[in-house]
Amino acid sequence: MNRSKNLRLWLVLCVALLLAAGLGWMRFANPTGTPQAPPGNLAGASLGGPFTLTNQHGQTVRDTDFAGRWRLMYFGYGFCPDVCPTDLALIGRGLAAFEAQDAGRAATVAPIFITIDPERDTPAVLKPFVASFHPRLVGLTGTPEQITAVSRRFGVYAKRMDTGDPENYLMDHSAMVYLFDPDGKPVAFLPHQGLTAAAVAELLTTHVR
């Protein structure tokens, strides 16, 4: 009888030790105790990379300036008649909703707009344009060569469409919202189709930790 009790006690102690070891490993792997975010639809993709551009204040900005911050990115152009301003307005509202929900986490998000039309989108043009969508939105432009390079690295399609007026051409381009993590790795994207402020806020709530 005593032998049976001792065996049961030994088994209980073994289970307790295994559970304690498991919990300790989990705390070591995730010391903050914050639940890990699920992988996004861009996990493992090769998008992104280094860039050197100019912001709306005429200052040189590099990808490394955003190190340690989440990057909510959108490529478009200031003379876009419909898609870009609509998407940027939704991005701004979605980020504002996330800020109201969790100001601490939202402060780690850098909203970034990169033009695909550097000929017209000068810093002077970008400054009032980006300010109309969110006070923290960074507008980036550069030389045609710089913009072509960064567009390729981020998998962005862009093509000039002549309208017969050299000053009022249009740009055909892909339209989506990108989220990159603090290490600059792609996490997820939202396409233009069906984009809403709520979807942007949910994207940030889900992944930003």
Rank of each mutant, 00 (worst) to 15 (best):
M1S: 10
N6P: 05
L9H: 05
W10S: 15
L11R: 01
L11A: 13
L13W: 06
V15M: 13
A16M: 13
L17P: 04
L18R: 05
W25C: 08
W25Y: 11
M26E: 12
R27G: 09
F28N: 03
F28Y: 06
P31M: 08
G33R: 04
P35W: 08
A37T: 05
P38D: 06
P39R: 02
L42F: 01
A43H: 04
G44A: 03
A45R: 01
A45E: 00
A45N: 03
S46P: 00
L47G: 02
L47I: 07
L47K: 02
G49N: 01
G49C: 01
G49T: 06
P50K: 02
T52W: 05
T52R: 05
N55Q: 06
H57C: 12
H57K: 10
T60E: 11
D63L: 11
D63S: 11
T64M: 10
T64W: 06
F66P: 00
G68Y: 10
G68V: 11
R69D: 08
W70E: 02
R71K: 11
R71F: 10
M73I: 15
G76Q: 11
Y77M: 15
G78Y: 09
P81R: 14
P81K: 13
P81Y: 15
D82Q: 14
C84V: 12
C84M: 11
P85T: 14
T86L: 13
T86S: 10
I91K: 05
G94F: 05
G94N: 00
A96Q: 03
A97L: 03
A97V: 07
F98S: 01
F98I: 07
F98H: 00
F98K: 02
E99C: 04
A103Y: 07
A103V: 11
G104C: 04
R105P: 01
A106R: 05
A107Q: 04
T108H: 03
T108A: 11
P111G: 00
I112Y: 03
I114G: 00
T115W: 12
T115H: 04
I116S: 04
P118S: 14
E119T: 15
E119F: 15
L126V: 12
K127S: 13
F129G: 01
A131G: 08
F133K: 02
F133I: 11
H134N: 10
H134K: 03
P135S: 05
L137T: 03
G142Y: 12
E145V: 15
Q146T: 15
T148A: 15
A149G: 07
S151D: 14
R153I: 11
F154Y: 14
G155W: 03
V156L: 10
V156T: 09
V156H: 03
D162A: 09
D162S: 06
T163K: 00
D165S: 13
P166W: 11
E167H: 13
E167N: 14
N168P: 04
Y169P: 10
L170K: 06
H173E: 12
H173P: 12
A175H: 00
V177N: 01
L179W: 01
L179Y: 08
F180A: 08
D181E: 02
P182C: 09
P182R: 01
D183S: 07
G184T: 09
V187S: 02
A188C: 13
A188E: 08
F189N: 01
A197Y: 09
A197H: 09
A198N: 07
A198T: 12
A201T: 07
L204T: 01
T205Y: 04
V208W: 06
